[in-house]
């Protein structure tokens, strides 16, 4: 698949929590249609980094440019970028007081200002894609974890974003539900969506990703296409990490 122009540009991004230097000058670019998988040890700052891209976390130094708009304190910029960037969380974070359909149509109606009919039509399309249209009128609490995560994906997609961020979307799921979520993600990747995903599903990384990023101690250690990445990692730290997770 041909990759397009740069849609995410991180340039020397730094962030501190008090004295703790979480992001230590992250620099990379993601092209349109690219699927990037981020792996790395716990506490290395993967979540923090991916969350700076839609400004759930503020960065304190450096530049992040998403779809041509720089993230700064301007609220309008942030709103605009959040409309174009969908996010899926480890804990699903569905709205428990709304039905599945309402969860999905909420943002299109209130942010995109679509009519209810149009929003519901798009919502149903998305639910078809993740294969749970029959759950539309249930509440999130009535669904299994895998179904909830697929609703969360549908909710993000209903806004028709240009970029999707996933932060460990399968790590809160029972093994038998992981596949259904990964399938939905793979389908999304094949449709040409730009994806950044933090995940430890190496199978997914191997078969779907265009690039794997190894992240450690607040910075990118190594980034390569998956075949190369898994076959001959350059850095000692990468090798150590891979040997740890692959031998489990």
């Amino acid at each position: 698949m041909a990759l397009g122009k740069d849609v995410i540009i991180c340039n020397d991004v730094h962030k501190w929590y008090g004295d703790f230097h979480v992001l230590q000058g992250v620099t990379t670019t993601v092209k349109e249609g690219e699927v990037v998988v981020i792996i790395g040890p716990s506490g290395s700052g993967k979540s923090t980094w991916i969350r700076t891209i839609n400004r759930l976390e503020e960065h304190q130094q450096g530049q992040i440019i998403v779809d041509g708009t720089e993230l700064n304190n301007d609220l309008r910029n942030i709103q605009e970028i959040r409309r174009e960037v969908g996010m899926v969380f480890q804990q699903f974070n569905l709205f428990p007081h709304l039905t599945v359909l309402q969860n999905i149509t909420l943002a299109p109606i209130h942010v995109r200002k679509w009519s209810r009919e149009r929003a519901e039509e798009v919502a149903m399309e998305q639910l078809e894609k993740v294969k749970i249209p029959e759950q539309a009128n249930k509440y999130p609490g009535q669904l299994s974890g895998g179904q909830q995560q697929r609703v969360a994906i549908a909710r993000a997609l209903a806004m028709q974003p240009k970029i999707m961020l996933f932060d460990e979307p399968t790590s809160a799921l029972d093994p038998e539900m992981i596949k259904e979520v990964l399938d939905a993600m793979q389908e999304l990747a094949e449709s040409g969506m730009t994806i950044m995903a933090v995940t430890h599903e190496m199978g997914f990384a191997r078969s779907v990703a265009n690039r794997v990023i190894f992240f450690d101690r607040g910075n990118i250690v190594e980034e390569k296409p998956p075949t190369e990445f898994f076959a001959n990692p350059e850095e000692e730290r990468t090798r150590l990490f891979l040997s740890q997770i692959l031998h489990h």
Binding site: N54, L56, L75, Q79, R82, R83, V85, G86, M87, F89, Q91, N93, L94, F95, L106, A107, H110, V111, R112, A152, R155, A156, M159
Partner: peptide, 20 residues
Amino acid sequence: GQYEAAVAVGLNGAQTTRLI
């Protein structure tokens, strides 16, 4: 997570408070 999910889909502060 509820605040985060709400702003991540593009709701502004007032909408997040009122709707979520």
